[in-house]
Design a protein around this nucleic acid. Structure first.
Lengths: 185, 185
DNA sequence: GTCTATAAAGCGATAGAC
DNA sequence: GTCTATCGCTTTATAGAC
């Protein structure tokens, strides 16, 4: 067997894929070892506190990507429709055409929420607030912008659930397209 | 210790509560035994095929309740706004003010989906179709009714995720109220 | 119908060689 | 930095007494 030298950052995509597919409880260290090609000892070298630290690292990485790909455009001065379009394109990419939920939503869905309460709250709060600000720029009143932003984020999260239940990613694409049209009015 | 004589039906509420809180993988037989007060042997008496059968029974029970409380009103001839109101009240009750997701949505979110693909697909498909028919009665065109029904169900599912992430059930109540107003136009 | 005891496998985590 | 081996515990599931 070839001895591989890995970096912590290299492991994150595979960790994210596992946690997003099987959830926190459903992802075992054996599965992580198999997917990464590393032994458990190596995994504990990179993540001394074990599975909770691995999941936290996935959330951190996802949050960093999200700040770059979604929050950045939403906060950048410019036409609202451009910001909204960038958000929608980033979401389509991140959710693989509606087949894959994101770790934040999956962890929020069950009691895993209690383990990562603070980052979960922050993630969705920042998203809704940033989108609401864009909607204000697009002409909405403050209160209407807040509720419309909430409903938009909710609709995205729910569309992933529905696309997965239907085993048909096209319904997610349709939902994103309608959302983009609705927000850009 | 008192020897209790249980019925399978008595176990379902507690099973549902456990699966809805911890997910399929996160719910252990030990936790089920503790919550029901039964030994593992008794559990296998009621569910000879073990945990998968328990989860299936929860889905069956939930589907039966849903047919009664949501699909029934939606399919019953009568004013659309009444059907929609009954749906919304039933959802508020079932989701405990947005604090608890339903088993169908939770199982669809991760790879548990592969174990229960057929009932998950059927559940959301029936819901969307029944709601779309009501929206047609309320005056929408067929295509618009279909997409509006999809978005409504998605918004509900997503609102539960967001309410759990925010640890604030009021945002779910608000989402349901807006949904009801939107659908009743 | 319920229980206890237990099997066999898997779990997260650790130790220590290289 | 990676590995193998292993610990202690939990898991699902079964056996068999009552």
């Amino acid at each position: 067997m070839v001895k591989q030298v890995a970096e912590r950052a290299d492991l994150l995509p595979k960790l994210a894929q596992l946690f997003r597919s099987h959830g926190y409880e459903g992802t075992s260290l054996a599965a992580i070892a198999a997917a990464t090609g590393l032994g458990k000892g190596s995994l504990y070298h990179f993540f001394p506190r074990g599975k909770p630290e691995m999941a936290q690292a996935v959330l951190d990485e996802t949050a960093a990507w999200f700040a770059r790909a979604v929050l950045g455009p939403l906060r950048h001065p410019g036409p609202p429709r451009v910001a909204i379009r960038e958000m929608c394109r980033a979401l389509e990419a991140h959710h693989n055409g509606g087949t894959q939920i994101c770790a934040f939503a999956l962890f929020a869905a069950d009691e895993t929420q209690t383990l990562f309460a603070a980052p979960l709250r922050t993630h969705f709060q920042q998203w809704i607030e940033a989108l609401a600000r864009v909607l204000v720029l697009a002409g909405r009143g403050a209160a209407a912008a807040r509720t419309e932003a909430f409903d938009a984020v909710a609709c995205i999260q729910g569309a992933i659930i529905l696309a997965r239940a239907a085993e048909d990613g096209r319904v997610f694409a349709g939902a994103v397209a309608r959302l983009e049209a609705r927000l850009c009015v």
